[in-house]
Design a protein around this nucleic acid. Sequence first.
DNA 1: AATGAATGAGTCTTCATTCAT
DNA 2: AATGAATGAAGACTCATTCAT
Lengths: 195, 195, 195, 195
Amino acid sequence: MTQHVKDRRAVLLSEAASLFREKGFARTTVRDIAAACGLQSGSLFHHFATKDDILFAVMESVIADITDALVAALADCHDPRDKVRALIRTELQAIHGETRDAMTVLVFEWRHLSAARQKEILVLRDRYEALWLTGLEHAAQAGLTRVDAFTLRRLLTGSISWTVNWFDRSGPMSLDDLADQVLALALREEGQAIT
Amino acid sequence: MTQHVKDRRAVLLSEAASLFREKGFARTTVRDIAAACGLQSGSLFHHFATKDDILFAVMESVIADITDALVAALADCHDPRDKVRALIRTELQAIHGETRDAMTVLVFEWRHLSAARQKEILVLRDRYEALWLTGLEHAAQAGLTRVDAFTLRRLLTGSISWTVNWFDRSGPMSLDDLADQVLALALREEGQAIT
Amino acid sequence: MTQHVKDRRAVLLSEAASLFREKGFARTTVRDIAAACGLQSGSLFHHFATKDDILFAVMESVIADITDALVAALADCHDPRDKVRALIRTELQAIHGETRDAMTVLVFEWRHLSAARQKEILVLRDRYEALWLTGLEHAAQAGLTRVDAFTLRRLLTGSISWTVNWFDRSGPMSLDDLADQVLALALREEGQAIT
Amino acid sequence: MTQHVKDRRAVLLSEAASLFREKGFARTTVRDIAAACGLQSGSLFHHFATKDDILFAVMESVIADITDALVAALADCHDPRDKVRALIRTELQAIHGETRDAMTVLVFEWRHLSAARQKEILVLRDRYEALWLTGLEHAAQAGLTRVDAFTLRRLLTGSISWTVNWFDRSGPMSLDDLADQVLALALREEGQAIT
DNA sequence: AATGAATGAGTCTTCATTCAT
DNA sequence: AATGAATGAAGACTCATTCAT
């Protein structure tokens, strides 16, 4: 039974994320979400008290997911350059893989969150961003970067997020190719690093 | 009188852009816009038939502005590296200068435009993007880049757009500093180019 | 100049009648009427104080017209049967001729008139209806009818008004044919009258 | 529960018809209708998506009702003259009985229906009109009429519809008396028929 | 947990009318 | 008389949320 509950909640968040991504939070009605889950509109409120709560839950959930994924990915590599590659690849996979909807929502529906909840999410995000900053700072210490870690992370956040608007996974460029292009942007050429 | 009319329309678009940026298109009411212009809600419809028309006009107008600005900026520089710097600087100025509101709206409220109008805007945007692509291709021919022009433009679009979310003009980093950081990302180090 | 004024007013009423007939009073905007006359919306109010006044004027005007037409038509015939034919023909001509729009408005937009103005129009209409009643009563005295004059007039009013919904002047049946059909309904067969 | 739902819908249509008749479709607000049913304005939209839908439903519903009534009435009489009397009586009863409001709306608010919906209603109306035409044609074959069935039906439609504007059920003339007057108009005198 | 009718505040839009020019 | 921007009161419709069943 607990499993059923979890399932339903997961399905709900997934459908909500999909709709939020497609139509935007404001244009998605609670009825849309309910319908997508095979429920009537009133039933949604047994799971979430408000529509805002759904948005919050979508974001909260995806942040947990991508943080876990990033921790796992970084565990496998110790070289600074490999770590940066892992950071980029993992974020790109999050944006173009199964968590795509929720990731897009995280970026594009941010303003629909109340200030208080933005803060909450930012706290959760801190851990994820700390992994990035640490990775980039190690690369900087290894002389691999040309831009300070703080600024670099922000520029890459933009580059990577934006791929949702143009990159086509079924096109000729693979996701790993794309990751390598971003990596080329982020770091000095190989062999140029000051050791 | 013609001047008054033009003024009013310009004021209207400016106030609308400001509100759309601040609260989002969906959460901005027609009353908000009217009030910001010192009008009653009904009066808005002498200038724009629908709320959607206002959004469209904001986007249309800013694209015209930034295209003009870019043409002017490029006219002053002939070196490929300078041209890329001009492309980046001009776009950053558009995003953090007077057209900030409208530029932000262009990015974040895109989905609220009907498909037909998205096409219209894309046509207008083509000229602007062509300037970018040409500039980056010349840089590529000069051996200045490490990523193909098409992909590079898209990655930079993301990096630059995203600065609206974190860059603070009144902070320690100047806009030109920021432009140079982006330039460092975009191109090989100076002196590395194959001449 | 007085002529111009009259012309403009006449044009205005004619265009208004046409629009009221086509779209209904409620769905016709003051702008529609102004545009049909080559005016801007505000200018209409130099001629009529309110939209209601226009409707009233249309009705008032057409009643004057058809009363005149009926008086003229009746002057030419002295036989009771001929008089009834003239009553029917004249009303049909009013409904399908130049006054068609206004006549239709008179019937179908009646309820949009305020109670006070309905009374005013009814007073004007009295003279017209008196001509009908007199005509039918003479026919009754001549033994030509099978239904009392009062009821007959009302039944015929319905029959004749309704033709606007189905009779096509350019079809095979002429307006005079139609009048004869209505006459056949209204009166006994010829030669059956009790003299 | 299903019963409740049906009831509510029926009440809604009835109240709407009453208001449409009294004030006209255009001047009746959705709030008026809701208030007449003891509902808030928004609640109406659980039953009908638009105000136009309500109008359509009123018309659709009354056509079904009168067609049933007519079929029932005709079943009881086999003589051509009796059939015509039944046609007239039944239509008069529809116009002055319980379906009065809806019948009036059917006639006077016709133009507020979209062209597409007018067609739909006309299709429904066909069956009803076919009963009339058949009845009148049988009367014609029996030599009872002086006007062709097609034209006669249209003239009678007008006569009968129009009674809504003047006939008073509580006055001295009964509805059956009125029906006989209309019958006198429609057919030759008894005994005159060519057998 | 689910239903779905009901709520009621809120939204965009319309439009007759006014009035300074 | 004409203009046309402005008014502001409605109007139809939307939708998150509630709640009795």
